[in-house]
Amino acid sequence: MNETNITNAKQRIEHIEDILSSVAAGDLDLRIESEYEDDLTGIEEAINLLIDDLTHELKKSLKLKAEMEEKLLKIQEQQKTILQQQEDLMELSSPVSKVWENILILPVIGTLDSQRTQVMMENLLQKIVATGCTTAILDITGVPTVDTQVANHLLKTVTAARLLGAECIVSGISPAIAQTIVHLGINLSNILTKATLQDAMIYALRKNEQLINGKVVLNQAINEETI
């Protein structure tokens, strides 16, 4: 091997080093070029092939990453929708309506978790104050499971309403739920309960009647006194 060959080889190795460092830095379009055919050529070609493979794999993983990101974005959007719907549901599910003079109805549908009960209780108490109604019917026909937490929430709501001077009637307790409550050992005896909404309504109307009769009697008494 003469000296020119050695310098040549040195230059070529330096060239390989340059290319490799460029590739490492991310420039994948570069390849080793050489006009000689000798022992080094095999190495040069092998390195070129490796760079080809690397480029291919990198492109593939980039594509996969983009796909994953897109999917993640979609899932995040769906989650947002679900959360929004949960909030919407909460708002929707606690309407309090005045159905008759002095009578409010609150139909409860679905599951009573702590958050929903809070909204429900606030709505009911506000409506009691705003309308001055003294009877509120809580209809739980649409509540599939009454466990101790639900019962506890009901008790609290009824107690709070009582503090505002309104009597609550809980209606819509199915025979299966009635048996379950008894087995659980919850004492609901200080809450007025009725089997159906109709029973509760009849009770409330009777109470109204007494109230109106009472007023008439009272008015008569006052009138007689003034005469």
């Binding site: 599939p144 499971t145 466990d147 299966a176 379950t180 659980l184």
Partner: peptide
Amino acid sequence: GIVDQTRITTAVSELLR
């Protein structure tokens, strides 16, 4: 039956809570 369904569901509900 509906009563047993309600019982087991309520029991599980208590445990999960």
